[in-house]
Simulated scan of single mutants.
Amino acid sequence: MTSLRSALPLLLLLNLPVLAADPLPSWSEGPSKKQIIEFVQAVTVEGSKDYVNPAERIAVFDNDGTLWTEQPAYFEVLFAFDEVKRLAPRHPEWKTTQPFQAVLENDHQALARSGMDGLLKIIGVTHTGVSTEAFIDNAKNWLKQARHPKTGKPFEQMIYQPMLEMLDYLRSQQFKTYIVSGGDTAFMRAFAEEVYGVPPEQVIGSNFVTRFQLKDGQPQVLRTASLVHNDDGPGKPESIDSVIGRRPILAFGNSDGDLQMLQWTAAGQGKRLMGLVHHTDARREWAYDRNSQVGRLDKALDLAKTQNWTVVDMASEWRRIYPFEPAVQPQVQ
């Protein structure tokens, strides 16, 4: 009878495929996957000319359109609309006051006419005037019951399986992963750790001015109606510099709002990886770029091509979009 000791080498050999498992199984064998893996190997192998100390392995990711779907509208905007409906009984004047009347009546044309000013009014009444803890609770409660208008799935399931794998792969190689997005910081903190494995202190977004106060003898941090930082466009490298204090060596986005973050990452010394998720799959997700009202990708796409940045063709390079979907053969472009 073969002893356990003599069988051990064979067992180790049998386990080799497991140890060498594909870190990005939902990615097809295309240029983006190759570039990502080669980059990670280059900066993590000691003795390599491109080796980067673990403390400096900073990776930053946009959220909307990069880690989860942003169509047919930003999810935080849909949350704000639902919050208006939830709060409406306390504000009977909203029934005849725009843009709140448009939200209550599902009048999309009136909402469009209200423009950015109208949206800011909606964001103001739904995102401020409460403590940070209360706002996060509101967001969590919404996420538990709200459903995506196209798929009927919870919004927390409308996340990109390939990007989840990339986050896990980077962390397994001692990268520190951050979300740097235009969304409200507290809104993203309501789900980022559970959904992406990114803790609250590594979530950076737009912020309102907050005030410490005692309410009924209890300390709280109140969210006021004044926006202190818009974490979009140039606001992204500004917040990275302020909050992280290190220039990333990897950055991923999907729109022109991420351009300056990618430029800031690219300008550092040593090996770098800048990536864009290009929404090219109208069958499984959406196809949009230069003329889109949501997640417009124009200038960043042009620069990516001249600078040899990684541009992920969703249709041809992702075998699976969402975790709840089976893997399929990618489309040939």
Rank of each mutant, 00 (worst) to 15 (best):
M163P: 07
D184A: 13
E165W: 00
R189H: 03
G152H: 04
S181F: 06
T185M: 04
K176Y: 07
E194Y: 05
V180N: 01
F155N: 05
L170V: 10
A192G: 03
S181C: 06
V195F: 01
E193G: 09
M188I: 13
R171T: 15
I159E: 10
M158T: 11
A192D: 07
A192W: 02
G182K: 00
Q174V: 03
Q173T: 09
F175P: 09
L170I: 06
Y160R: 06
A190K: 09
P162W: 01
S172E: 05
D168R: 15
Y178V: 14
Q161H: 07
S172Y: 02
F187Q: 00
T185L: 01
M163E: 05
G152M: 08
E194I: 11
S172K: 15
Q174N: 14
P154N: 03
T177H: 00
P162H: 01
E193D: 13
E156T: 13
G182V: 14
Y169A: 12
V180S: 09
I159C: 12
Y196Q: 02
M163L: 13
F191A: 06
G183C: 13
M158K: 01
A186G: 01
L170F: 04
F155Q: 04
K176M: 11
D184G: 03
K176S: 15
E193Y: 12
K153G: 01
E165D: 05
F187I: 10
K153H: 13
V195L: 01
Q157H: 11
D168T: 15
Y160N: 06
I179C: 11
K176R: 01
V195I: 11
